[in-house]
């Protein structure tokens, strides 16, 4: 077995459950496309392409979290902050599809599972947290960075528990679910911290250079357009 595989492989979750999640993923992504159209203008569309390409690059960078254990960014929270929830989910999905079809990473049968966990669950959790945190924290590069850090950690743990749910429904070996859940949550807290640092650095940098390109600074706030409009 090679160690470059980073997502759920074929055979870990059985066929019927994988198929159900594949259908779920297709329906959810179709809904995301519908919602995303309202956000996608001439400026956000190329930005979303860049976010997808950036997430692909950073997903190659596995960092050590424990001896013998590594992790990589999933990207949901980062995408939500830069391009919004709907486009963000599509960005992460694009990366997962390219990785599966071209780089043989993440089983073809398991694609629906991987999209559900990382692109849908991870992004949804990131979205809820980013909206909540930006009500409390200042809309400055530092506030945005802190938001990215906290939201990333929780979003990664939520995504890891998506796998536990799928395994509970269609796991192919007899293993204790609480043990799987605990182990996944434990390592993914550490991975989430790493992801959080990367996401925080990235969004704080973009917020400093081009605050007008940060979706979270334009949309996730109470409608006091004048303030941010003037600052940008």
């Amino acid at each position: 077995m090679d160690t470059t595989a980073m997502h759920i492989a074929n055979g870990i979750v059985n066929g019927p459950v994988s198929a159900i999640f594949a259908v779920f993923a297709v329906v959810a992504l179709a809904f995301c496309v519908r919602q995303a159209r309202a956000d996608l203008d001439d400026r956000l569309a190329p930005m979303a392409g860049l976010v997808a390409a950036f997430i692909f690059a950073v997903q190659m960078l596995n960092f050590q979290v424990l001896p013998g254990v590594s992790g990589h960014l999933l990207g949901g929270t980062l995408a939500v902050i830069l391009v919004g929830p709907w486009v963000g989910a599509l960005c992460v999905s694009t990366v997962l599809i390219v990785q599966c079809l071209l780089f043989a990473d993440g089983g073809l049968t398991a694609l629906g599972l991987n999209i559900t966990n990382m692109a849908l669950l991870g992004t949804a959790a990131g979205y809820v947290l980013v909206v909540a945190l930006l009500r409390l924290l200042p809309k400055t590069p530092a506030g945005l960075g802190t938001t990215a850090l906290i939201a990333s950690i929780i979003s990664v743990v939520v995504a890891s528990q998506g796998f536990v749910l799928e395994y509970a429904l269609g796991g192919t070996t007899e293993l204790s679910l609480p043990w799987i859940s605990g182990t996944m949550a434990g390592v993914h807290v550490l991975i989430g911290i790493g992801e959080g640092v990367i996401a925080a650095t990235t969004v704080a940098t973009v917020a400093r250079v081009r605050p007008d390109l940060v979706y979270a600074l334009r949309r996730f706030r109470k409608p006091v357009n004048v303030e941010v409009g003037a600052a940008a």
């Binding site: 160690t3 595989a5 596995n62 254990v69 590594s70 992790g71 990589h72």
Partner: peptide, 13 residues
């Protein structure tokens, strides 16, 4: 980048 199994792979092994 680290060549160690990632969090999911580690749990699977």
């Amino acid at each position: 980048a680290s060549g160690s199994p990632d969090g999911l792979d580690y749990t699977a092994r």
